[in-house]
């Protein structure tokens, strides 16, 4: 029988193969505010849930077209989901009025006169 590297294929051999880093992404997503009071500015979505509102929540924007508590963005695993909190003017995702949505890179979210661009984390 010949001997070669495949003769030992059913045994685990010691080696030094570098493994890819498979940890979860750590850079949080960002809501880039491009219009409305305070724009331009970037809001880091660093928590599991972030609420956007006129007078309540984590991101407060003094716009009369925002409800007191307007939108929640929740992290679900690697994704971010926006949800309308029964606001008066609603949420428009890329121009379409929605109740909730899984967000994708570059999505435009319009809340009254406030516009955000969503940037996914990495």
């Amino acid at each position: 029988m010949s001997s070669g590297p495949w003769d030992n294929w059913d045994r685990t051999l010691p080696g030094s193969i570098p493994l890819h880093d498979v940890r979860m992404p750590t850079r949080a997503a960002v809501l880039e505010q491009t219009r409305g009071p305070g724009a331009p500015q970037a809001h880091l979505l660093g928590r599991e849930q972030v609420v956007v509102g006129r007078t309540e929540g984590d991101i407060r924007i003094a716009s009369a077209e925002l409800s007191r508590s307007h939108m929640r963005i929740a992290r679900k695993g690697p994704e971010y989901v926006c949800i309308d909190l029964d606001s008066s003017n609603g949420i428009y995702l890329n121009g379409v009025k929605i109740h909730s949505a899984v967000l994708r890179e570059g999505d435009h979210l319009q809340l009254g006169d406030v516009i955000f661009v969503f940037h996914a984390g990495a």
Binding site: K97, H99, A101
Partner: peptide, 11 residues
Amino acid sequence: VFAAREGVELK
């Protein structure tokens, strides 16, 4: 008119 997209919910 819009494209139906997974994960989008309308009310």
